Amino acid sequence: MKRVSLLFLPIFFFSLSCEEDEELNFIQENYILGKWFVTEIGTVNSNNTIVYEDYINDSECEEDNLVLNQEGTYEENNFEFISSNCQNDQITGTYILDNNKIVQTYTDSGGQLKQKVLTIVALTYEEINLSYTDNEINKIVFLKLRK
């Protein structure tokens, strides 16, 4: 009887360890915090390869950026030079980090609550690669950003 019990003991501990592994979050939240500047934008070509191009900011304005704050708020700044003025089409809201996804929640100009999901493709302390679905063109867009 003791032999049978001893055989089941390792199986029990293995099943516990598997359940705990599913709960792990591999993205450290402090790595995503800060002001990120868009450097490249990519799309998938006909060969299913991601092709990146330099992201061109309006030279008269500040660089487009994404700011992720520690308290779970964010701002997206998209600058454009219009009628001799630099204008910021800013979006602000809250975000949560859900494993490898940054889920942004914001209110659009029409007053409707919206969500945008950014998938973290690669992350270091200085660089982040993101992807998201652009609903206007119905395609996946890839972004490279640097601090």
Rank of each mutant, 00 (worst) to 15 (best):
Y55W: 07
D134P: 14
V4R: 00
L145A: 09
K116F: 01
F142L: 15
S109H: 06
D134S: 14
N45I: 09
N77A: 02
L118E: 01
I11L: 09
L143C: 11
N30C: 10
N129T: 14
N88M: 10
Q104I: 11
V44P: 01
I11N: 00
T105L: 08
F81D: 13
G72T: 03
S59G: 08
I91E: 00
F81E: 12
V44W: 07
D98V: 14
K116D: 02
K144H: 14
Q87S: 13
I96P: 05
V38R: 03
G93E: 05
R3L: 03
T39Y: 02
N135A: 10
Y132K: 04
N100A: 12
Q87A: 10
E22P: 12
F14Y: 14
V44C: 09
E19C: 10
C18N: 15
Y55T: 07
I96F: 03
N57Q: 09
Q104T: 12
V117T: 11
N47Y: 12
L66P: 00
I120G: 01
N85K: 15
E63R: 07
F37L: 08
E126R: 13
E71V: 12
Y31K: 02
V38A: 04
P10C: 05
K2N: 06
C86I: 12
N57S: 08
D134H: 13
L9S: 04
D64S: 04
W36N: 00
V103C: 11
D89Q: 06
L113E: 13
T49D: 08
T94P: 01
F26E: 12
D98G: 08
D21K: 13
N45A: 12
S84D: 15
R3K: 07
L68K: 03
I128N: 01
S46P: 04
N25I: 15
S109N: 11
N48D: 09
N30F: 10
I32P: 00
G111Y: 13
I56V: 10
I27R: 01
Q115L: 10
L123W: 04
G110N: 11
K35M: 08
Y52A: 06
N77G: 03
S5I: 07
K144M: 14
N45D: 12
A122F: 08
L7C: 04
E126P: 09
S83R: 15
L130N: 00
S84K: 15
I102P: 00
I137G: 10
Q70K: 13
G34V: 03
N129V: 14
D54S: 09
L7I: 04
F37K: 01
S109L: 08
T39A: 01
E60G: 10
